[in-house]
Design a protein around this nucleic acid. Structure first.
Lengths: 206, 206
DNA sequence: TGCCGCTCTGAGCAAGCGCTTAGCCCCGCC
DNA sequence: GGCGGGGCTAAGCGCTTGCTCAGAGCGGCA
């Protein structure tokens, strides 16, 4: 377990002050490992190298920590997706690029991904609603690429809505099973999944 | 919410005595709704219509309840899968049957499925090890069908291991997003997914 | 009728939870 | 050189948690 050096994932680079950033990183690790409800504020604080009370100087509640992680995580992955959608090239290439980037992110940041994808039920009602909205947007981005492909005659998709759901679901679940000590690198998983998704939408082999 | 009649899912039919069965069903609902750690023994007991203390007559701990649910759930879905694998017909048909059954089960019993698939981290070490073993077996069943298809020249799968993982992942994640009030019935999702998986493995169109 | 054993309850214990408070340290500014 | 305020800690409050225990109710058997 000593391979886990205390690197700062790029996601949290611009959180200040330093203590606040250490707290989010500690919270991500703890939430991903044990789940939100099984994680104590004492655990988060001690991982960040401070006393339990110090947490409350930077965050009002434990839930607010989860909310920040969830918000930033969703915005980042949504950004990757929109970038791919707005890129150049035919729908097939853009869908592959989107899947590659999305999957790569969920593998690379699989701890954050786990929190983002599987702990949102612990959010308070208004934060939950906000996150659900982001998720709907995310789904919309993939759907639009699929729709483009169908319209262009490049894809063969009988059920656009269902297939979109399945593609998104497949990519999201990477955060659950990905193991950095496993056989595949994030890039390799992204490549594999891009190919699988191409087949799912019946993309014309160029 | 009154559409939720207190039916007895077939999975728990043969648990006796009656109170013990009511407790598992209550626990499945509660765990699926809020997660294992956010569920209190008082909540489970009151859903089952009894006092908190009564739970401990039938189960030693709250974790044992989770273990029973996890064990039975894994065995049931594993049974469906092996049945499909050992059925008649070419690999393509058997893979489709497996996916159809597995997905249908995870949609129909999506509450149980959620607990089975997403709460196993809360199991104690020895129970966890036992469940992980069942999961390896499950993966092996799908892999063997894929391998059969490749050997028969019916599938085009560059990466058997990775594709198997993706297929399993896709099916499992149904438990997370499936909504019984949504547009799709379990049968429809099973059908959709069987088609998508066929494409993923590059099955020869019969 | 008397007794046993199974099921269940009311009351409650020890531990751990999220979070608060009072006060200390220390750095920058006048 | 004094002081104000942000960052931090030790202590602990009020509450909930998983779980226990002594005893009540009751059906079946002798």
């Amino acid at each position: 377990m000593d391979a886990q050096e205390p690197k700062t994932p790029t996601a949290w680079r611009d959180i200040t002050p330093d203590a606040a950033r250490r707290l989010v990183i500690a919270a991500v690790e703890a939430f991903a490992e044990r789940g939100y409800h099984a994680t104590t504020t004492r655990d988060i604080a001690s991982r960040a190298g401070m006393s339990p009370a110090a947490l409350y100087i930077h965050y009002k509640t434990k839930e607010e920590l989860l909310y920040q992680i969830s918000r930033v995580g969703h915005l980042l992955s949504l950004g990757l997706l929109t970038e791919a959608r707005d890129g150049a090239g035919p729908p097939a290439a853009r869908l592959e690029a989107a899947v590659r980037a999305f999957v790569r992110w969920h593998a690379e940041h699989h701890t954050t991904g786990r929190v983002v994808q599987y702990e949102l039920g612990a959010l308070g009602p208004e934060h939950y609603a906000e996150i659900v909205d982001l998720r709907r947007t995310t789904e919309g981005v993939i759907r639009s690429i699929v729709t483009d492909g169908v319209a262009a005659g490049d894809f063969d998709v009988p059920d656009v809505s269902g297939t979109t759901l399945a593609v998104l679901s497949l990519c999201i679940d990477v955060a659950r099973w990905f193991n950095p000590d496993g056989r595949r690198t994030p890039d390799e998983v992204g490549e594999l999944y891009a190919g699988l998704v191409s087949r799912m939408v019946g993309a014309r082999t160029a």
